[in-house]
Nucleic acid binder design. Structure first.
Length: 299
DNA sequence: GGACAGGTGCGGT
DNA sequence: ACCGCACCTGTC
């Protein structure tokens, strides 16, 4: 397969900050053969894969030539982030966000696949990241289509480190996930989320067109997402933010409760925290949330 | 072993 | 509306 490459300045895209701030699950850091201590990343979205490399002040996104437009949109590369960061800093000049911003320089909000994001955040409920990722990988290996992608060799790699192989598994379509049945999700280790997943998949096949929801104003979109069992206030905000580009939302998770206390010096119910944070950060709420998440979680 | 995880639905006030 | 609680399960 002919491959192609997108080049982005590092101040516009920091791979680690963008992938490790909690918005996406299917990625992996690896160490390319022959390059001393220079990490790279493998990212799979929907049915496509790209490899990301840091090369001085430049980030290279390598993928199959026909997949490049998808990743250009996925990384939202048409939108310069520097102005957004400046405006955000002006809205909240305090030391906390200032530190977080400098720590998360180059973090971008991704434009992810709607179905994959819905399923991912149902799985994420009261769950930890390593387990979430394990479940998703097993899900894709069991039901996803095997695809050929850019390989990455393996010579010179430290023992135990495995680079991306020539093939990978696409995220499964709803049809395959419905055929698998509820018990399949139990066996994957989804526990009490299993019926939620099975019902969500059926809903997507039978009544709700996820693409059509993009036309709804944000409040209605949230309401529609909340009708999926297992999608509460936090997951609905995440799905609307990461898959529908609703940057005005501020998902409140355990980390953001801490951030709220640090910013406002008081205690409040989650709903109030969300409201006040969204008022504070306006159209940059989602960006602020990710920047703070990355900062708090890495600290 | 027990606590914990990027919450949610449920049943009490 | 606003609590408080139980909850599958792998990992530390």
């Amino acid at each position: 397969m002919p491959s192609g490459e997108l080049c982005v300045p590092k101040n516009e895209l920091d791979i680690s900050a963008t992938l490790e701030c909690g918005q996406v699950f299917r990625f992996r850091r690896f160490y390319p053969a022959g390059v001393e201590a220079q990490p790279a990343w493998e990212l799979i979205s929907s049915g496509m894969r790209c490899l990301l490399f840091e090369d001085g002040a430049i980030v290279r996104i390598r993928a199959g030539k026909e997949d490049l437009p998808y990743f250009k949109n996925y990384f939202d590369l048409e939108r310069p982030y520097a102005p957004l960061i400046r405006k955000l800093r002006r809205l909240e000049p305090g030391p906390l966000l200032k530190k977080a911003l400098s720590f998360a320089r180059g973090l971008r909000l991704l434009r992810q696949d709607k179905f994959e994001t819905l399923i991912g955040f149902i799985i994420s409920t009261n769950n930890n990241i390593s387990r979430i990722r394990g479940i998703i990988e097993r899900l894709c290996a069991a039901l996803g289509e095997r695809r050929e992608g850019l390989g990455e060799g393996g010579a010179g790699r430290p023992a135990g480190e495995k680079g991306p192989q020539g093939s990978f598994f696409a995220f499964p379509p709803a049809e395959a996930m419905a055929r698998a049945g509820e018990n399949f999700y139990r066996n994957l280790g989804c526990g009490y989320r299993s019926p939620w997943l099975f019902k969500a998949v059926k809903k997507v096949l039978e009544t709700v067109n996820l693409e059509a929801l993009a036309e709804l104003p944000t409040e209605d979109l949230i309401r529609a997402l909340r009708e999926f069992e297992g999608v509460g206030p936090k997951a609905a905000d995440c799905i609307a933010l990461f898959a529908y580009g609703r940057h005005e939302l501020f998902p409140v998770d355990t980390w953001m409760k801490k951030a709220y206390r640090d910013l406002f010096q008081d205690e409040a119910p989650e709903k109030t925290m969300r409201k006040r944070l969204m008022e504070r950060f306006g159209p940059y709420s989602g960006l602020a949330q990710q920047v703070l998440f990355y900062y708090y979680r890495s600290a």
